[in-house]
Amino acid sequence: MSYRENVEITRTACLADGVYEMWLKTEKMAKEAKPGQFISVYSNDGSRLLPRPISICRIDGNKLRIVYRVAGKGTEEFSKMEAGQRLDIQGPLGNGYELEKILSDVAGKTGKKVDRAVLFGGGIGVPPMLELAKQLHDAKTCDVEAVLGYRDNQLFLKSEFDEFGHVTVATEDGSIGTKGNVLDAVKTCKITGDVIFACGPTPMLRAIKAYAEENSIEAYISLEEKMACGIGACLACVCKTTHKDEHSQVNNARVCKEGPVFNAKEVEI
């Protein structure tokens, strides 16, 4: 189930240049949310009709935390809001990570229990990995290795990942950790694992898909596409799939419904 709610903002903060967080007090949404899912956030300005899809960064009781980068007028509006103000949101949306299922599927395919999960987050793809890291850590079935890519030394959320596993950092400007992107960090630090989870810009996901295929590792990646309904009705947000999709009867899956998390082998990016 997903819901439409008018929620109260309970906390906001600026985490890095242009990167903000917001905690939202929900009635039902947080209780049903999974890592990897997203919410639709609506503008209070009637000239902007379409929802802004934002990933769930943390789930805490009845609260959801989102972390977003100011990318245009809508996210700019959100960044100016304060605790006590209200927002319309819808969710939780998308498939998210069905952790138990994914871990047993991977074990089934590889014939080996998942002992180590590698989580890749690039830029504003870092936040959605946090709840996943927490749930993997809490389940105590495998080690968590997080590889986080940032532009510079503003390592937002990094210290929170430290609580849930081992963290490796790459920065584009080389100010901290490996200079370059997350895959450069993987190569330099010789990181391996039994399953990959990744969220970030498309070129990064493309490289991870190739890396996973070369090394025969199952990889789950979160895709982004422009959305209108956010619930699977309008067919705005499709991605190319290698198989005929059951819903569409063509090689297109809905990022907002069948995704945003896909097995990397099943999509063309």
């Binding site: 009709l49 422009k226 947000c237 063509v250």
Partner: peptide, 15 residues
Amino acid sequence: PWPGNPTPRIAETYG
């Protein structure tokens, strides 16, 4: 069945 157009398929405009 029709596969439709490539993405992006939509864009927001004023109102």
